[in-house]
Design a protein around this nucleic acid. Sequence first.
DNA 1: ATCACCGGTATCCACAAGGTACTTATAGCA
DNA 2: TGCTATAAGTACCTTGTGGATACCGGTGAT
Lengths: 116, 116
Amino acid sequence: MDTGDIFDPNCPTRVVLDRIGDKWSALVLLCLADGPMRFTRLRSRIGGVTPKVLTQTLRTMEQDGLITREVFAEVPPRVEYALTDLGRSLHDPISAVATWAETHVAEILRRRERSA
Amino acid sequence: MDTGDIFDPNCPTRVVLDRIGDKWSALVLLCLADGPMRFTRLRSRIGGVTPKVLTQTLRTMEQDGLITREVFAEVPPRVEYALTDLGRSLHDPISAVATWAETHVAEILRRRERSA
DNA sequence: ATCACCGGTATCCACAAGGTACTTATAGCA
DNA sequence: TGCTATAAGTACCTTGTGGATACCGGTGAT
């Protein structure tokens, strides 16, 4: 079933790539790298994310086994999200891309303006 | 202007991250790593991409200085896309994420089904 | 006269993301 | 006995972007 060709749309690797390359997953992962965190904290740290979209992102990441979701039966409710081993193993690759972005941001913005 | 906080929506790093993390850019970059390529070739190698979206992706990457677009005045037309030095410098980080995906695809799909 | 080639546009549609308001359940307070 | 605050979402509507399909323009070959 896996053709091994990442350029084939049916290649599972591409499915995975689409997920972790979405707008918020990488940010969530980077955020949780500092330790477990609650929903509201995540929401305020990751500026600009709406609750609906954050919920979707967290649910998807949970399904993929990247994070765990632990509910405490308290009032008001408390829900903690944490990275799994799998999630932690993704930290370095994601972090490398983030570092690249930080390093080259200035150059990219310069070129982008020049071509505008 | 740059707060240095990747979690701030105004952080330029995040703007860059959004771009290179889109659905097709990484694939184009990986594809061009083998050498310059023409539009139609790219389109057929990257299964599932429509011409409009591929054009958008290529234009954006060109504006960001990741690739060059060279038009040859021939009939039928010939347009070659190639990585710039900047684009090449992004290859390793992207490739690391792709490798991670290939390595962990099986586990993710297994978990995904279990939670369905 | 027509067709095929290539690198795209033009047009329309659908789905997913974004914005805002609302919910639920309880503890604390007046 | 209300009233309010709180956390973690949902519900609902609007908006924007991606996707599907059709078409274009110039030329050389059939």
